[in-house]
Design a protein around this nucleic acid. Sequence first.
DNA 1: AAAATCTCCAACCGCTTCTGT
DNA 2: CACAGAAGCGGTTGGAGATTT
Length: 303
Amino acid sequence: MHSIRKMEGFKKEEIRKGPWKAEEDEVLIKHVKKYGPRDWSSIRSKGLLQRTGKSCRLRWVNKLRPNLKHGCKFSAEEERVVIDLQAEFGNKWARIATYLPGRTDNDVKNFWSSRQKRLARILQTSGTPSSSNSKPQKNKNEVPVFQDVPTLEAPVFSSSMEEESSYFDNPEQIRMMPLPSLVKTELPDGGYANLSQYEPLSTIPFPQLPQLQPDLLFSPESHDQLLARLDDPYFLSVLGTADTPELGGAAQFSLGPPLFDPVSGCVNSAADVTNHATPDTLFDEFPSDMFDLIEPLPSPSDW
DNA sequence: AAAATCTCCAACCGCTTCTGT
DNA sequence: CACAGAAGCGGTTGGAGATTT
């Protein structure tokens, strides 16, 4: 009896974990509406939710924030941005996410890790003697890593504002609302600029993404040719393997059209992208043990 | 149709950085 | 300057749904 009461008392104080209910979201949204995305821990201290401030913040940033792209795959452009910026910044997901409106660090992180798994599996199963003994892989996704690129028609940077902002009565209120950290975006030159979701895209600072040089647009090559290319640092930089962000320096090369057209402020059409193989395409051509031959370059911190 | 396997992603944890006192 | 609490970040995990056998 006594212990049960004790347990009940304890349970009341217990911090809730796991999936969020719609009611909890409501409460959180109301709180943000009223106070802005801050004072997360006060949500619990006020007894509004039995969630930690940390959990509330995460929920807001990853799911409830306006203008997030829910349930749409990374477009080819976005993939390239991630690949390029990962090569440049390393696993700085939050930083990379600031270049991808509507994407969170979690999105980028998840995208990258599934990509890595995919590539690892491909390398493992694409013909090494050892792997040929292992049980056959039958996942059809394995063969054409990037086969879905041309069909990716996510409304990139489309304004889902209408539906999202329905959380709020007054758009102006949103505009004036203190914005989450993503708003403050460090520019490549070290300065800061506002990356407000409510600003026209053309005002969003965007790094000049490298342009793909013609000889790196991937034509069918023999494995020997590909291996020969491993001596080319440019070639390696394009690969941008997860484990070797140090390879970096992609920005100094030309890797393709920028994601944004600086004139129109729009994203380059998917049609353009289909004309360029993405770096991922490379992996289809590689011998599976190729990466055994690559030695990571020293990391920038060691320079 | 059922079981096995794979993929995606929401959410947690631990650590680091920032900010206020 | 030192400390504490809050916020932010990156790594990891586990479950749900999709796909394959």
